Amino acid sequence: MKILITNDDGISAKGLITLAGLLNEIGEVTVVAPSGQRSAVSHGITVHEPLVVKEVEFPVNVKKAYSISGKPADCVRLAVEDLMSDKPDLLISGINAGPNFGQDVIYSGTVSGAIEGMFYNIPSLAFSLDGADDEICYHAAVDIVNHFIKTNKNPKVIWNVNFPSCTTDEFKGITYAPLSGHSQYPFRFHKYEVTDKEWYYFPVSEAVGVLEAGSDVDYVRKGYITVTPLTFNFEQGADREEGIFSIGTTEPTEK
């Protein structure tokens, strides 16, 4: 099995190195990751400047490792289009330093890396860690990947997986969890004046983790690994009200 891993924390991130080491027992690992920190870049791609690629030495055994000057989605695109001789059988993005809960999956470069894999019909997962203790990642990550390979038959659905930062004694298990309806990292802006006609803002944020009962935040904070299936269809579930189509237009007809 050929496995592609990426992230948004950069080629030297601990979580990426941990993930590569764990996945060696499943298949042949290729690492294609940003050259530096790219958190919260969402699904951005690079279109107005060249993408610099460097093959790098990696701390654990992998087939190849490359750093890319762009974003996670760029990494996946270059990996599939050129850097890998064969399309990967599996893509995993992470392990992110920090959780990806609720509406923050929209901003997440980690989740977007997995979604880009989904666009290529590659079975894809996003892994994130809520804290610093990765003991549970070591114990459960491979089992989750193997279960995903066996059970997820829809390449248009990714799994967003959040790991708790706890000991094995505190670990409760693995569960499905819906996304919280809130941002984990709401931003406020501190204003600094340069002159009376020029000023700038510095974004500041603290993780708040709104504990909606039964949400991904709630379960992870209780010691569970949460799995939330995600797909990319902003229209799905929206009401198609008749009035929308009466503003001087007509329904399209087939010819």
Rank of each mutant, 00 (worst) to 15 (best):
A79G: 10
V145S: 05
P178G: 13
I92V: 15
A65Y: 02
A132F: 13
A140Q: 12
I136N: 01
C75R: 04
S128I: 04
D169V: 12
Y176Q: 09
V145T: 05
G113T: 06
R77P: 00
R77H: 09
A65P: 02
F119A: 03
N146H: 10
E81N: 14
T151L: 10
L125P: 00
A177H: 07
V62G: 07
M118Y: 00
P178N: 13
M84P: 03
K156L: 11
A132W: 10
S180M: 08
V161G: 01
D134Q: 05
G113N: 09
M84V: 14
N100W: 01
P186Q: 15
F101L: 06
P59F: 07
K71N: 08
P123L: 06
I122F: 03
F119H: 12
Y138H: 13
A126F: 04
K172L: 12
I174D: 11
N162S: 06
G173F: 14
A97D: 07
H139R: 07
P88G: 11
V76H: 07
G113I: 05
Y120F: 05
P178K: 14
T175V: 15
G98D: 12
V161W: 04
Q103H: 09
S183L: 14
S85L: 13
I95V: 15
M84H: 12
V80F: 09
S165I: 09
I92N: 08
V76D: 05
S128P: 00
F171M: 05
D133I: 04
S112P: 04
A126P: 05
S180Y: 07
E170Q: 10
D134N: 11
F101H: 02
V157A: 01
K87L: 13
I115R: 02
T151N: 15
H147V: 00
G181Q: 15
K64H: 09
R77F: 04
F148G: 03
F101V: 06
F163K: 05
D82R: 15
K64Q: 09
T151V: 12
G131N: 06
L91V: 09
Y66E: 03
I68Q: 00
V142M: 07
P164A: 08
S112L: 07
T175E: 13
G173Q: 13
V80T: 10
S124P: 01
D104R: 02
T168E: 07
R188T: 15
N160W: 04
C75P: 03
